[in-house]
Design a binder for these strands. Sequence first.
DNA 1: CCGTATCCTACTGGATACTG
DNA 2: CAGTATCCAGTAGGATACGG
Lengths: 121, 121
Amino acid sequence: MSARHRKMTHEDCPVREVLSRVGDKWSVHIVAVLREGSMRFSDLRRSIDGISQRMLTRTLRGLERDGLVTRTVTPTTPPRVDYALTPLGRTLLEPIMALAEWAETNRPAIHTARRRYNDAT
Amino acid sequence: MSARHRKMTHEDCPVREVLSRVGDKWSVHIVAVLREGSMRFSDLRRSIDGISQRMLTRTLRGLERDGLVTRTVTPTTPPRVDYALTPLGRTLLEPIMALAEWAETNRPAIHTARRRYNDAT
DNA sequence: CCGTATCCTACTGGATACTG
DNA sequence: CAGTATCCAGTAGGATACGG
C-alpha cells in the first residue's frame, strides 16, 4: 500500500505498463475476440474489421511474447495456426471489462462535456 | 448484453474509446496525482517526474475537455491555476485501480514470459 | 506563473508486394 | 494460409524560446 505513495515516476509505473501493453490500437480487440475460444489466423483477420495482416501478426506476437496468448502451429499444407488466450490472458479480461463498463456508462457524459467545451471555444 | 456481440469494429468500441482517452503517456499519472485533491499547475508539474510543460498543458486540456478535470483560474499576479478531478473523473479511478491491481499482480508473470520468449529467439 | 508557438525526432500503423 | 519485407504518412511527444 504505502509503496504506491513513492514519488510518481513514469517508468516503473504498473498502470502505464499495462496501458502500454493494451493501449495500442488492436490488442483489446484481439483479446476480446479470443475470449470466445481458440481461433486461427485468417478467421481472426476476418473477425476484426479493418486490421491489416501486418498489424494482426505484430500484435499477436506481442501478446504471445507477454504470455497472454498461445500460438499453435499445425504443419499441414496449407499451414494452420491457432491462437488462444492463456490463463493469464483470461484474467486480463476482468479489468478490461470493468473499463468497458465504465466506458459505456459514461460515454454520453464525455460526449456532452466535449461538445460543451468545443462550443465554448 | 447481446449488443456487445455485434461484429467487432474498431470505431464505436467503448473500450478503445477509453483507452484512447487514458492510454496516452500522461493522463493516468495526472488523474492519479489529482486523486489526493486539487493542485496547481506548477505543483502538478513537479509531482509528475519527467513531464514537459507542453505535455502537461495538453493533457490537462484534454481531460478538461472530456469533463474529467476542472480548471480554476485565480487572476492574481502571478496568476494561479488549480486543477481538480470532477465527479466523473473520480469514478474513472475505480476501473483504473482495477487495472493497476492486475498489473501489480501479474507483472512478474509477464516479465518471465517476456524473458522466456526472448531467450527462445 | 501559466501558458503558446515552433521545430524536430521517433514511433505507430497502413498499403503493397513477395515467400514457404 | 500465414507470414515477412519495404516503404510511407500521420502523429505523439520532447526541447526550446517567447508572451501575458
